[in-house]
Write a protein that binds this DNA or RNA. Structure first.
Length: 302
DNA sequence: AAAGCGCCCAACCGCACGCCA
DNA sequence: CTGGCGTGCGGTTGGGCGCTT
């Protein structure tokens, strides 16, 4: 026996919203607000033949103030790409870092444009072939058992790396492929347990050795790192991520400004400084690959 | 001109989670 | 503790539109 439907599907209107419906919904919410309300009951109150969930979606994605549509900037592209590679398709969290953007908008933008923009630079089949060949030739099972999502993100990492350093890239140099690091940034999630917007902090990896999953704070600096997490809860060390308490301070990196500062490697061409700070092929990163890929797989298969 | 095709994006669907009685 | 309910989220769908043939 399934769950009861949220509304009487036979008596609700579907499809595009009319201006009249928008006006009714907007007027009601502007007068009464959304806090403490009941989305399920709302359409009945204002005489709309719509599902409560549909009303909520319409408000959040189109009617609420300060919504931006289209025209994503280069900087927004960078943020979306980095966060997607770091935390995956957690669109609501990504949207929280982009004022005026909705998760739906970002999701659509990613699926229709941004992903193609990246993967389009090399033929996807070509990358698949190389990954597959490499895996077979080296008796290395790191690509086996990866989910499609994991493969996609792995491909995107290769793309990013190839863009950064086309000559020495892993993509162009299969001999280096076992040394792939999924992401050379630390990602910390702050806040959110009190209902506030979570604050994502990313730092370029600078540790001399690769921290291990589950490492904890040392001298108030988070050292755990890694791109993959299936879920996180405020106040926990989750997978490779450190999640600090509300009000926790990140040394010299605080919120969006820190995030932006560490985006340069994505948009700029390769140079020695960026190359080393992100260490796709640096000596310090060429350690513990097996562990990294175990984590990589684990994160996706959970 | 029109049929076919692919892309885009608004909206829907179903599941998971949290709250509360 | 448990079950019902509302909410939030991510994946998917399908209609509209523009481009190509």
């Amino acid at each position: 026996m399934g769950r009861a439907p949220c509304c009487d599907k036979a008596n609700v209107k579907k499809g595009p919203w009319s201006p009249e419906e928008d006006a009714k919904l907007k007027a009601y919410i502007e007068k009464h607000g959304t806090r403490g309300g009941n989305w399920i009951a709302l359409p009945h109150k204002i005489g709309l033949k719509r599902c409560g969930k549909s009303c909520r979606l319409r408000w959040l994605n189109y009617l609420r103030p300060n919504i931006k549509h289209g025209g994503f900037s280069e900087e927004e592209d960078n943020i979306i790409c980095n966060l997607y590679l770091s935390i995956g398709s957690r669109w609501s969290i990504i949207a929280a870092q982009l004022p005026g953007r909705t998760d739906n908008d970002i999701k659509n933008y990613w699926n229709t444009k941004l992903k193609k923009k990246l993967l389009g630079r090399h033929k996807q089949s070509d990358i698949n072939t190389k990954l597959s060949d490499h895996s077979n030739n080296n008796n290395n099972q790191f690509t086996q058992g990866l989910t499609n999502s994991a493969m996609e993100r792995l491909q995107l990492h290769l793309q990013l790396q190839a863009l950064q350093n086309p000559i020495f890239s892993f993509y162009n140099n299969p001999a280096l492929w076992p040394n792939i690091l999924p992401l050379q940034q630390k990602v910390t999630i702050q806040g959110a347990s009190n209902g506030s917007t979570p604050n994502i902090v990313m730092e370029s990896a600078a540790a001399a050795t690769t921290p291990l999953t589950g490492d904890t704070l040392v001298d108030s600096k988070p050292v755990a790192m890694g791109p993959l997490v299936s879920s996180f809860r405020q106040g926990e060390v989750v997978d490779e991520f450190v999640v600090v308490e509300d009000g926790g301070q990140m040394a010299e990196v605080d919120g969006f400004d820190g995030l932006k500062d560490n985006m340069v490697w994505w948009s700029n061409g390769f140079d020695a400084k960026v190359g080393s700070s992100n260490c796709w092929g640096s000596a310090s990163s060429v350690v513990q690959f097996n562990e990294m890929f175990k984590d990589y797989e684990l994160g996706f298969n959970m």
